[in-house]
């Protein structure tokens, strides 16, 4: 559904108001969402959806998804998270996933950056190189 200009502007203002010291404030986000749901301004569903999208994009920017073919041991997990914190700042949250499809290696996604050392991606690249070279 397309959001009209005023609603988009409002949701943007609300999103900008959800920050404390440059960081998204969960408490503020909750309050704002509740207020919108309660006061029901015009097109409030659209506004909430857009607000949620902006919050989601911001959360994704500071959230790392670490995928591996097999579960990582604690030492390895800690090393990976420390490495990410060194690069992206200490506020990074992380999540581990087991994806057997990767075959081997790691795939880390944080915001729109992807670090890929999986066997799957290498095979994919090989396939592309052989097919389109």
């Amino acid at each position: 559904m397309k959001l009209d200009k005023d609603s988009r502007k409002l949701s943007k203002q609300l999103f900008q108001a959800s920050f404390t010291d440059g960081k998204l404030d969960e408490g503020k986000v909750r309050i704002i969402a509740k207020k919108i749901a309660d006061s029901k301004p015009r097109n409030f569903v659209g506004i909430l959806k857009d607000f949620q999208r902006q919050v989601r994009l911001d959360v994704e920017k500071h959230h790392a998804v670490i995928e591996s073919a097999q579960p990582l041991d604690d030492a390895m997990s800690k090393q990976v998270v420390d490495g990410l914190k060194a690069k992206y700042g200490p506020s990074i949250s992380s999540e581990f996933k087991v994806t057997p499809d990767l075959i081997g290696g790691l795939r880390i996604k944080i915001g729109s950056d992807v670090f890929d050392s999986s066997v799957r991606s290498r095979l994919d690249r090989l396939e592309t190189n052989l097919l389109h070279a």
Binding site: S112, D113, V114, F115, D116, L126, N129
Partner: peptide, 14 residues
């Protein structure tokens, strides 16, 4: 081509 793929990690923007 296989040796070209030996690079450890690739970074991309998705």
């Amino acid at each position: 081509q296989i040796s070209g793929l030996k690079t450890t990690t690739s970074k991309s923007n998705v």
